[in-house]
């Protein structure tokens, strides 16, 4: 699916530009976005090195293990395929906590590391059930304080910039629950297909 979506985005854009005379902008965008990616990856690189270094210390000191022991009952239900005391569990929890406090630049390295551990567990280059569950919880982003949005609201003179905190958390939670339910449903369908095939 990602192959088709990816190719279609570029194809539709270029075909549209042919008809509407926006080829100039497209030409520019191709090289601008390629250059922007390098800037983005360099800034990602710095947080990746820092946080994965820090988390390696935490792992060796047994802190991640402690964290996963503490929350195992909840996380076990979400990720039944991860064995007890597996490092993936610790990184998943570290990622969730960082997201909760809106620490995007700490959450990403821990999330990537969690994916790394999940891949080791699975041993293939295909997305596993646990990976999909982990990703959808990440994309619905449960954050206590959506700082960027509050900043924009302040900038445009809101009388109460933080009044959307409640509605944002509520929407996040509802979405996460719904997404987990859909994931579970698709997962059970996959299992049936697997058995029949």
């Amino acid at each position: 699916m990602v192959n088709i979506v990816w190719a279609l985005m570029a194809i539709i854009g270029i075909l549209y530009a042919m008809v509407n005379g926006t080829m100039d902008q497209v030409n520019e965008a191709i090289f601008d976005s390629a250059a922007d990616t390098i800037t983005l990856v360099i800034s990602l690189c710095s947080v990746l090195i820092f946080w994965l270094g820090m988390m390696r210390i935490a792992e060796k000191a047994g802190l991640l293990n402690g964290l996963s022991k503490l929350f195992r009952p909840i996380v076990k239900k979400l990720f039944p395929e991860i064995p007890d005391n597996h490092p993936a569990m610790g990184y998943i929890l570290a990622n969730f906590s960082a997201n909760l406090f809106g620490l995007g630049n700490a959450a990403t390295p821990m999330g990537i590391k969690a994916m790394h551990e999940l891949k080791k567990l699975e041993g293939t280059d295909k997305a596993s059930n646990s990976m999909i569950t982990f990703l959808i919880i990440n994309t619905s982003s449960i954050t206590l304080i959506p700082t960027t949005v509050i900043a924009i609201r302040m900038q445009y003179g809101s009388a109460n910039p933080t009044e959307i905190v409640g509605s944002t958390i509520l929407a996040s939670i509802c979405t996460t629950i719904a997404a987990i339910m859909i994931d579970r449903y698709l997962r059970s369908k996959r299992k049936v297909k697997h058995r029949n095939g």
Binding site: I112, K119, I132, I136, T139, L186
Partner: peptide, 21 residues
């Protein structure tokens, strides 16, 4: 980012579930 960094090329149903979410 998450799949790319660990080299998972087959995203399976991840994109579909993500977009539904």
């Amino acid at each position: 980012v998450y799949f790319g960094a660990v080299g998972v090329k087959k995203m399976g149903e991840a994109l579909k579930v993500g977009l539904i979410a």
